[in-house]
Write a protein that binds this DNA or RNA. Structure first.
Lengths: 234, 234
DNA sequence: CATTGTGAAGCGTTTCACAGCC
DNA sequence: GGCTGTGAAACGCTTCACAATG
């Protein structure tokens, strides 16, 4: 069993799929299935089998020709590559509807991202307990980040406050930000930002709906286009 | 002013960026700025100017050489292309933490996606009013979809119930689904599904954090990789 | 003369096809 | 014999570079 060196640089497209494979493998493992072929995994993930093999090949040669992949071992390897062997506590900025839903969302803690803190500007929210975490004043952000050695921040504040929140997070030492506000955050080089914008998702769906209705009007029964990024037209 | 025909097929990558441009243009419009260059727009969107021009060229030739783009007209054209000239009411399946947060999320209605209904299996939640919508029994899903002519469904139920929810939505006539459950939904050809998986987002951030710590240990001060899909490493 | 619109080059991702191996 | 691992081809997206033009 080799030590955990980060070997090659893994393509971004592959990194975005590894969590999907991981989730499927975990389900297989629960169902006491301990071997899976690239084709089997591909079917469950909704992708091409060659893509699965290429993706997994970036981690190393962990399959057995003629047999497939050992589910448990693959889980171990993907988790290692994604850095999921340790918990990454997150700090949530904003204890409104969304912030509270996020804090209460079981998926966070279950998957190794415990809520290390949740802060807000509104004194009315201080000390409200959300899923085991007490809401603290925004002023304490920096102290929480430092004391709990947090590197991931979640921005769940209104658009107008998002850039300030991001600035505070960066100043406190956070190096990755998950942004739910519909604004483009400006951050220093070296900070990773991912954005989840619900309105954008809906607008992309709207585009497909609009195409559908136009196609219908023209009597064109051509298939919808394949999607990209995340999501897919089945 | 030409009538609204969906002209060429627009690349998926472009469709995914149009909502971002739209949002920025709306901000500009509010600030009484009525002209913008591809470079200006690119700067605000965090992308390359050539990309902006190519993206916009798929809609038609709506810019003026030597001048730039008329903000209002561009907003109109992007909205038209995305099918945002009409409201698209959505139905939310699941009135738990997430479903309620989504229903209450102002961004939905503000951007042309009013909550046409929210349903749940749990009788304890019936008739709870969330952001103006009364939670209804799951049984009524089909009737709500039909009576309000809803084509977009939001799946905000636990993983175990997600496929059932999707099946119900499809049977009721919904053709686009926004899925928040961490499972791959299986739907008939022609139905568009997009997935928002918070754990996946965090795991991608985790990958970058992990690389950072490995790089630090090895004293390699190489830059972090550019991101793909959504989000970006600045 | 600043800025768009776009062929063409460049680059990363996907898919194919098959050699390698258990 | 069946399935992995991977060069190479195909594809789509991004970026360049510049002609077109208000």
């Amino acid at each position: 069993m080799p030590p955990p060196p980060a070997r090659r640089r893994i393509p971004d497209a592959t990194v975005a799929r590894l969590p999907i494979y991981l989730q499927i493998l975990a389900e297989q493992s629960t169902a006491a299935i301990d071997n899976i072929s690239s084709e089997g995994l591909a079917g469950l993930a909704g992708v091409n089998a060659a893509k699965v093999r290429k993706d997994l090949s970036y981690l190393g040669s962990y399959g057995t020709r003629g047999v497939g992949y050992d589910v448990g071992y693959l889980i171990y390897q993907i988790r290692r590559e994604l850095g999921l062997n340790y918990d990454w506590p997150v700090i949530i900025v904003g204890a409104g509807n969304l912030g509270q839903a996020l804090a209460g969302y079981g998926g966070f803690i279950d998957r190794g991202f415990p809520v290390g803190g949740i802060v807000d500007v509104d004194p009315a929210k201080f000390d409200v307990v959300v899923a085991g975490a007490r809401v603290r004043p925004l002023d304490e952000l920096s102290q929480i980040v430092e004391s709990k050695d947090i590197s991931i921040g979640v921005v769940a504040v209104p658009s107008s406050a998002a850039q300030d929140a991001a600035d505070l997070l960066v100043k406190a030492g956070v190096t990755s930000i998950l942004n739910f506000a519909p604004v483009i955050l400006s951050v220093p080089v070296g900070i990773t930002v991912r954005k989840v914008d619900l309105a954008v998702e809906l607008q992309i769906l709207s585009y497909h709906e609009q195409r559908r209705s136009v196609a219908q009007q023209n009597g064109q029964l051509q298939g919808a286009p394949a999607d990209r990024g995340r999501g897919a037209t089945a």
